[in-house]
Amino acid sequence: MRVSVLGTGTMGAGVAASLLRAGHEVTVWNRSAEKAEPLGERGATVATDAGAAVAEADVVLLTLFDTDAVVDVLESAAGEAPTDAVWVQCSTIGVAGTETVVQLAGKYGITLVEAMMLGTKAPAEQGTLTMLAAGPSDVLDRIDAVLDAIGAKTVRAGEQVGAGTALKLAANAWIASITAATGQSLAVARALGLDPELFLEAIDGSASDSAYAHTKGKAMIDGTFPAQFALDGLRKDIGLITDAARSTGVSTVLLDALGRVYADASASGHGGDDIAAVGTAF
């Protein structure tokens, strides 16, 4: 299929590489052109603007940072794509942002579904993300080959765009919580005179074990944080989750605390580091 990827940051670049590996015809565009150029060396067509990128697309993937970026790109490129192209909103933009994009899709008469990406840099590059999809089943059926190229599995959250976003917010609340909790437990163990590795050994293989605790815990112990999922990106998501929870009457006590601890790590200079750097806040 002819697939256009708009936004080649950490996730978009990995997604584009996985699509190329699966044999799709890929066109990429990024506001900062230098981030898209390496994909040209791997066989992608590098477009000079978003409109040109979607001109012959069967599927358009929006892999951008926030609502403003998605709206800007959608408004600049919507009229340039074939009328039967399927637009796939993959950016984590929250409930209100998704509603805005749905309204714009209606305005421009485009076919929109969503496929949130659950995973980080390495799974994006390996094509092993979990895709949280939503939209009419017949439209999602049309893009199965694309989702299969970038994900190990696809969870269909519902027939309406927005259900995938809801599931992504719930999943990222878990990721934010378990990462911060790992940092807290390691800090407590160290403060009480123990080798923090003993905490990971204690939970290993137990009912409370988590592969994520080991992955992020090792980075915390080593003090090295190459970004798989940037801490400031998760901070943005925590804000979206908090807004969604508050608007529906769900307590934000834990989310508020998470927001503070990730903000502390960011203020210490770790905003661009991996989310494991939240451990420094303890």
Score class of each variant (00 low, 15 high):
T252L: 05
V86N: 05
T100K: 15
A265N: 02
E125T: 13
M131A: 14
F282N: 04
K216G: 00
E25M: 07
A173K: 01
G269L: 13
G94S: 07
S185F: 13
V155N: 08
D141G: 06
I178F: 04
Q126R: 14
R2A: 11
L169P: 07
L62F: 04
S210D: 09
G135H: 00
A244I: 04
A277V: 02
T92E: 00
S32L: 12
D138Q: 11
L64Q: 03
A267W: 00
G183Q: 06
R190I: 01
A191R: 14
T120K: 13
M117W: 07
R246P: 00
L6V: 01
I110S: 10
I203Q: 10
A134Y: 01
L39Y: 02
Q160Y: 02
A187N: 11
P136N: 12
V278E: 06
S91A: 14
T128N: 10
L132D: 02
A44C: 08
S268G: 14
D274M: 09
D274C: 09
I143E: 01
E197K: 13
A191G: 13
V188G: 04
H214V: 10
M116E: 11
A50L: 08
Y108R: 10
T252S: 09
V70H: 09
G135W: 00
Q126F: 09
S251D: 14
S76D: 12
I203F: 04
L140K: 02
A52R: 11
P136F: 05
S266G: 12
D68M: 10
A152N: 12
A149D: 02
L62E: 00
S268I: 04
A202Q: 03
A181N: 05
A16L: 07
E99G: 14
E56P: 10
L64I: 01
K121E: 08
A69V: 05
E159T: 14
T48C: 04
G43E: 10
A277C: 04
G271R: 11
E80S: 15
R246N: 09
A16S: 07
A105S: 08
A133I: 11
V73D: 01
V46N: 03
G43Q: 12
F199H: 11
T252E: 07
E75Y: 05
V86G: 05
D273W: 08
V15G: 00
G249A: 05
P82F: 12
G9V: 03
I175L: 15
D148E: 15
A77Y: 04
A187S: 14
L240S: 04
A281T: 07
V73R: 10
A96V: 14
D243Q: 13
A134Q: 03
R235N: 06
R246E: 12
T83W: 02
W87S: 01
L192M: 07
G217E: 03
G94K: 09
A211F: 09
T92Q: 01
L20P: 06
A276C: 12
L240E: 00
S177M: 13
G9P: 02
T248Y: 01
G51P: 08
G135M: 00
S247P: 00
D195E: 12
P82R: 10
A124M: 02
W87F: 08
S247D: 15
F282P: 05
L234E: 01
G272R: 10
G97E: 04
A55M: 10
V278R: 05
E41K: 14
A17C: 08
G259V: 08
S268Q: 15
G9C: 07
M1E: 05
H214R: 14
V253Y: 08
P136H: 13
T48L: 12
A85L: 06
A163W: 13
V102C: 06
A77G: 03
